[in-house]
């Protein structure tokens, strides 16, 4: 059996209380070591809370921060994904999720997609990451780490799987909203996320590990509902909505092999086609190639007719 034990730390961090949240992480890591866990996943900004605004710069940590080193030390011989505000050497602030293994920071994923619409204002306070990489892990398979909104962009899950990830990890601080009675679980947000995770797991024939926080920051309540979805889109584990808790589940990595041989979607991806057509679309948008979707009379790069010369102003 290629069984791995995964712990979903569905915590409710306290806003801006870095030391307190750090202590809770260390405590959970200790419990995880005792239960023989292989991987522990904490939610997005689990070390700082989400609605930071101008506090972001005050709770930011560089990767050589001794507080981070304490967490690395507490990880011991398991794998952990923790999330915090990372400050780069050139003082940009990122929403980061780090893979901790073997007493070191193995990878830092910087959130790629920063929602700045509706109730979100992330782009105001944070820089967006530019790198997406799967990474080998102690689990024996590749991991792909993404943060919340990253999963609302189709390409992210696909690229991680194509890059070698068999377990896609998404850490989130997803605010619950749309309480319509007709929604699954009474919450529109939960319905949308559950749909996404099953689709990604099935389409990438990978495990999807989703860890979402609970608790309240200001007006916003986070809904939990952390899940593990199998490579056939099957539900392996569902944590309750809104309850804080540390949940243990087991996955059988052989399921990935079985599914990928039975349903070779990744094998059949047409990367060169995507690459070529994306190159064309980029050139067309930049006005460097004739726009195949353009209205008659429009300038290059514009799908709609513009006034001649307006693009120059």
């Amino acid at each position: 059996m290629e069984t791995r034990r995964i712990i979903l730390a569905q915590l409710g961090p306290h806003l801006g209380a870095l030391e307190e949240n750090l202590a809770r992480h260390v405590e959970v890591l200790g419990e995880a070591r005792d239960t023989g866990a292989d991987l522990v996943v904490f939610p997005e900004l689990g070390l700082t809370g989400y609605q930071l605004q101008d506090l972001a710069g005050e709770v930011a940590m560089r990767l050589d921060d001794p507080r981070l080193a304490r967490l690395v030390a507490a990880t011991g011989d398991l794998s952990a994904v923790v999330s915090f505000v990372e400050e780069s050497a050139d003082h940009r602030l990122f929403i980061a999720a780090a893979l901790l293994e073997d007493g070191e920071i193995r990878q830092v994923h910087r959130k790629l997609h920063l929602p700045t619409y509706g109730l979100f204002d992330e782009r105001r306070f944070f820089a967006s990451g530019d790198v997406l990489r799967a990474i080998p892990s102690r689990l024996g398979v590749g991991l792909g780490i993404a943060i919340c909104e990253d999963f609302w962009h189709l390409s992210v899950a696909q690229m991680l799987a194509l890059d070698g990830a068999q377990v896609l990890v998404n850490v989130s601080s997803s605010p619950g909203r749309d309480l319509a009675a007709t929604n699954e679980g009474g919450l529109g947000t939960a319905t949308s996320w559950r749909t996404l995770m099953r689709a990604y797991a099935q389409l990438t024939t990978s495990f999807v590990v989703f860890v979402n926080r609970v608790g309240v920051d200001e007006s916003i309540s986070f809904w939990g509902g952390s899940e593990v979805i199998g490579p056939a889109g099957d539900t392996v584990f569902s944590a309750p909505l809104y309850d804080e808790g540390v949940f243990i589940c087991e996955v059988n990595l052989a399921d990935v092999r079985r599914e990928r041989i039975a349903l070779p979607l990744l094998r059949d991806e047409r990367l060169e086609l995507q690459h070529r057509e994306l190159g064309r679309i980029i050139a067309e948008r930049a006005g460097l190639a004739p726009d195949s979707m353009v209205e008659e009379g429009a300038e290059g790069g514009l799908d709609v007719t513009g006034q001649p010369g307006r693009g120059a102003t």
Binding site: L15, G176, L179, A180, A181, T182, N183, G185, G186, L187, V214, G215, V216, S219, S221, L241, Y242
Partner: peptide, 24 residues
């Protein structure tokens, strides 16, 4: 019909909201 909410979820969210506001 379009305004019907899940009252169980609403009560949970509101209770946690009230406790969170007081605690903070």
């Amino acid at each position: 019909v379009e305004l019907a909410i899940d009252t169980d979820v609403a009560r949970r969210v509101i209770a946690a909201f009230i406790r969170g506001q007081l605690r903070q």
